[in-house]
């Protein structure tokens, strides 16, 4: 589904990713772990097509097509979803209005009739209950005045509403208490199936106790320095990152 080859990325004149390779197939859950400054957020932003991130070498393809040159909305419509580490507040634009506009644009891309407003609202209500958000949140401005945990749960609600093919979760576990972490994990687990894929980007292992990854990769200094199964995460938790980054250097 996703194939990243020898990716080099420059941000504000600084090279952050220095030859990253990653292949994700349908039905898989991958976790990328790494210390601060290793390039984790750069990877998620460049996959989503954030302006200001320049690919200087290498390529990204999605379902066999190169997406390096595509706009963020084109990628989103193809099914790439980024759950943001710090979701931005957009005052006055209601969550519902926002979600419907997003959903309609995705349906249109698939040459489908948009979902009826009635069905959409019904689904939104059910799913907001699943992520433990009060229905009132649907009417409020996007993330406007939401707490940190509410913002993260709102990201999961959007994930469930839009049903993308690849979900990239950027530090979705940061700043969550145990209960919220559980809610968020349940949301992700309910999304997961054999046709889609999940890329978890995280600093800590604790999210991986709730969502078991098929593959764990360690990112250090812009490259993947080690890959393994979920046991690698446990090992990292015990030993820290230093032993890996040292050998990499």
């Amino acid at each position: 589904m996703l194939k990243v080859e020898n990716l080099h990325v420059e941000v504000a004149g600084k090279i952050i990713l220095k030859g990253l390779d990653l292949t994700i197939s349908a039905g898989e859950v991958h976790a990328i772990m790494g210390p601060n400054g290793s390039g984790k957020s750069t990877l998620s932003n460049v996959l989503a097509g954030k302006p200001g991130y320049t690919i200087i070498k290498g390529s990204i393809s999605f379902d066999g097509a190169a997406i390096d040159e595509l706009s963020p909305e084109q990628r989103a419509r193809m099914g790439i979803f980024l759950a943001f580490q710090y979701p931005v507040e957009i005052p006055g634009v209601s969550n519902m209005e926002f979600l419907k506009a997003a959903s309609d644009s995705i349906y249109k891309h698939r040459a489908l009739e948009p979902e009826s407003s009635m069905d959409f609202i019904k689904r939104a209500r059910q799913l907001s209950a699943l992520v433990d958000l009060d229905q009132g949140f649907l009417k409020r401005g996007v993330n406007e005045g939401f707490s940190g945990g509410e913002k993260k749960r709102n990201e999961i609600l959007q994930l469930l509403m839009l049903q993308p093919r690849l979900a990239i979760l950027d530090e979705t576990d940061s700043g969550l208490d145990i209960d919220a972490l559980k809610t968020v994990s349940e949301g992700i687990n309910s999304y997961k199936n054999s046709d889609n894929a999940v890329l978890l980007i995280t600093h800590y292992q604790r999210l991986l106790n709730h969502i078991q990854p098929d593959f764990v990769h360690v990112l250090a200094d812009g490259k993947i320095v080690r890959s393994g199964d979920h046991n690698l995460a446990t090992e990292l938790e015990a030993k820290g990152y230093a032993w890996l980054t040292d050998t990499a250097a």
């Binding site: 097509g49 706009s71 979701p87 926002f98 506009a101 997003a102 644009s105």
Partner: peptide, 8 residues
């Protein structure tokens, strides 16, 4: 960017 990343 937030809106675009959702397909708008």
């Amino acid at each position: 960017f937030y809106l675009r990343s959702r397909g708008i």
